[in-house]
Design a protein around this nucleic acid. Structure first.
Length: 655
RNA sequence: GGCGAGGUAGCUCAGUCGGUCAGAGCAUGCGGCUCAUAUCCGCAGUGUCGGGGGUUCAAUUCCCUCCCUCGCUACCA
């Protein structure tokens, strides 16, 4: 029996679950179910990633210990799958003792193999900042923040000899087209690998700076870098190295990730596996982002779609269908409730739901609710079967490669063909003409195809699919379904079996009342149907700020000052940069490197009063220290300096 | 600036190793049916397949160039 292991990334517990996490989980669940129906033994893994500096910071902010904090957020993620109708086989946490042991085993193994070595890292440590600075970051040899000379510390860190495997990885990717897909991400990784030398990966953090992590087995003064720890969940969950699961499911691993974590999965992870003497995973499947009204949605922005509300409002099946139907594999997609409602009505209510309802109703009207026996096959029956065969094959081929949108598109060709077939054969006319044998055949052909559709939809909408099958008098039994044969088998539905009287799985829905403002032209049918005699209310002013709001104290963190530009010149080694000296009423003028050379000439700036961010962390830009940021206002057309309406003393505060 | 991916009907997209390849769904208009969830079926469109140039008997599909969008990166602060 062939095997299929599918994973989501383990989600980082520094924020609550949102649409992106929901999608990844739904996609993993659906492909897992698909492969199960295809006759494979499947294992579906998800979980949470809980170590690292960011978690420490977040827990401090919440006034909790890292573990308490991680427990709390992890529980939210654990609760996500059931809401979505997803059934992972395992939920792993990187704080699980078994995982920790495995990570240490692998570290030890790679260490003994000689692929982990001591190296001296960074060196310039500023005690004020509690961090290292690279040569590049230092300003005249001083800490840019504290203006003190950092101490040179030869901090020993452990490095993974990743560079050693660069050639191997390139070759492996070239030889296995399915290793990273879709191809655009494969190309991206290849160009990354081929463009320059891969550096070794620093995989340790000294405990003096971070203790919230897994201790290195060969040096108790260090903990493991969070990515090295996290990626290993994929095998620790299988009880590497001796577990039954590991023997069964490795290397049949198919990872699903969003495009932001492509590099760790496409570069770190395979080279880690290679170094540990393990075979690389089978495929890395990269999907895009869900945008919200074409604006980026992420943990750090406030415009997060709440998966639970969508499920509560529309049902898990419809929500899953929409996400899997709408996002082209690898590309970004836009989430709007209008689009969701549009799909739900057009595809599910009108096409599929109505098909079920009309077919069941006719079975009751003409055959007392029992599946009729088919008689002689007509040409039109054969044609429909052929179309159905191709539709189902198309579904399977695409779903197997994670292209769920195309798979569903293909299956819907059958759904639409069934509606058409009913119209063409006109059962109501056959009934009137007492052609019962033909009528029985027609209805049987429709019902049997509906069964096939329902079975294929199980991975996408398990709940709805099972209800459809109950309505057809054939409750879902996973063991009895052989999806690979479904396109061709015929006559599975038994004649004489009672079917449901009606089907109301997908009622039409309207957009919930406080209709969100639609900046773009609405595409949902409701937009037109809601038209009344009254003129539409004047469009509300577009929400100006999609970003999350901040507290006043956050604003206060900014030290905005007015200053006069004393001089400005082009940066000698940069096209876009100007080096300007701005008087802020301090002893010395500030040197600010501004990316304005393409918009302003140096002469335009000299003598002007500008607004600058005075407490921005200083940084060297192309060799020149920049101690602030000059603010401008811009639209699509112009860029203008931000200034006060009248003269203000240099150093005047903006508040 | 460099690298990469794209620009195809109002919208979302499919497609072409150059020759019925100008398509699907949604939206729009008209017509039909009545089994059905005001559902379904049929018909009708519009498109300079981003602009320009080139190769060819023939290009949306190949080459060059320009413009625009997005991603990564950088001299983005």
């Amino acid at each position: 029996m062939s095997r299929f292991f599918v994973t989501t990334p383990i989600f980082y517990v520094n924020a609550k679950p949102h649409l992106g996490h929901a999608f990844t989980t739904i996609l993993a669940d659906s492909v897992s179910r698909f492969h199960a129906l295809m006759g494979e033994e499947t294992y579906f893994l998800t979980g949470t990633d809980e170590h690292g500096d960011k978690i420490v910071k977040a827990s401090e902010a919440a006034g909790q210990s890292p573990k308490e904090y991680a427990d709390q957020i992890s529980a939210l993620f654990r609760g996500l799958a059931p809401i979505l109708g997803a059934k992972p086989n395992q939920f792993i946490r990187t704080t699980d003792p078994d995982h920790i042991k495995t990570v240490q085993k692998v570290l030890q193994k790679v260490y003994e193999a000689g692929d982990i070595y001591f190296g001296e890292y960074g060196g310039h440590y500023c005690f004020g900042c509690e961090r290292f600075y690279t040569e590049k970051e230092l300003v005249d040899g001083m800490c840019p923040d504290h203006k003190t000379k950092p101490e040179y510390i030869a901090e020993k860190n452990y490095f993974f000899r990743m560079s050693k495997y660069q050639g191997w990885l390139i070759e492996h990717i070239n030889e296995h087209p399915e290793f990273i897909r879709p191809a655009r991400y494969r190309n991206e990784v290849l160009s990354l690998l081929e463009s320059g030398a891969l550096e070794d990966l620093c995989i340790s953090r000294p405990k003096s700076r971070l203790t919230w992590g897994i201790e290195l087995p060969f040096d108790s003064d260090f903990v493991c870098y969070v990515w090295f720890d996290a990626l290993l969940n994929y095998i620790s969950a299988l009880n590497y190295p001796r577990g039954e699961r590991f023997k069964k499911f490795w290397p049949a691993a198919n990872h699903i990730v969003a495009k932001d974590i492509l590099k760790p999965h496409a570069v770190f992870w395979p080279t880690m596996l290679k170094a540990a003497g393990l075979q690389p995973y089978q495929s890395l499947n990269v999907h895009g982002y869900w945008l919200v009204r074409d604006t980026k949605m992420s943990k750090s922005l406030g415009n997060v779609v709440e998966p639970k509300r969508m499920v509560d409002t529309y049902g898990a099946s419809a929500f899953r269908y929409f996400l899997l139907r709408e996002m082209a594999f690898g590309s970004d997609a836009s989430f709007t409730e209008e689009a969701l409602v549009g799909r739900l009505n057009a595809d599910l209510a009108n096409d599929l739901g109505n098909l079920f309802n009309r077919a069941l109703a006719m079975t009751h009207k003409y055959f007392e609710g029992k599946v009729p026996s088919p008689d002689k096959e007509f040409q039109e029956d054969a044609e429909l079967k052929h179309l159905g065969l191709e539709a189902m094959q198309g579904f399977q081929a695409n779903f197997g490669e994670f292209r769920t949108a195309r798979a569903l598109e293909s299956l819907w060709e059958l759904v639409r063909a069934l509606n058409k077939y009913i119209d063409q054969t006109a059962p109501w006319t056959l009934f009137k003409n007492k052609q019962m044998a033909r009528l029985g055949t027609v209805l049987y052909v429709v019902l049997e195809h509906m069964r096939k559709v329902a079975v294929h939809l199980w991975p996408v909408m398990p709940e709805a699919s099972e209800k459809m099958l109950v309505q057809l008098g054939m409750p879902f039994e996973q063991e009895k379904i052989a999806l690979p044969k479904e396109p061709e088998v015929w006559g599975v539905l038994e004649s004489g079996v009672a079917v449901a009287q009606t089907s109301n799985l997908f009622p039409r829905v309207e957009l919930p009342e406080p209709t969100p403002p639609a900046p773009k032209e609405a595409t949902a049918p409701e937009a037109k149907k809601n038209k009344t005699d009254k003129p539409l209310p004047k469009e509300a002013p577009a929400p100006v700020c999609p970003a999350e709001s901040i507290e006043f104290t956050d604003f206060q963190k900014l030290d905005l000052r007015v200053g006069t530009v004393l001089s400005a010149e082009k940066h000698p080694d940069a096209d876009k940069l100007l080096v300007v000296q701005v008087s802020l009423g301090e002893e010395k003028p500030r040197q600010i490197v501004a990316g304005l050379a393409d918009r302003f000439s140096p002469e335009e700036l000299v003598g002007k009063q500008v607004v600058v961010v005075a407490n921005l962390a200083p940084r060297k830009l192309r060799g020149f220290l920049s101690q602030g940021m000059v603010l401008v206002a811009k639209d699509a057309e112009v860029t203008r300096l931000l200034t006060a309406a009248g003269p203000v003393d240099d150093g005047g505060k903006v508040a």
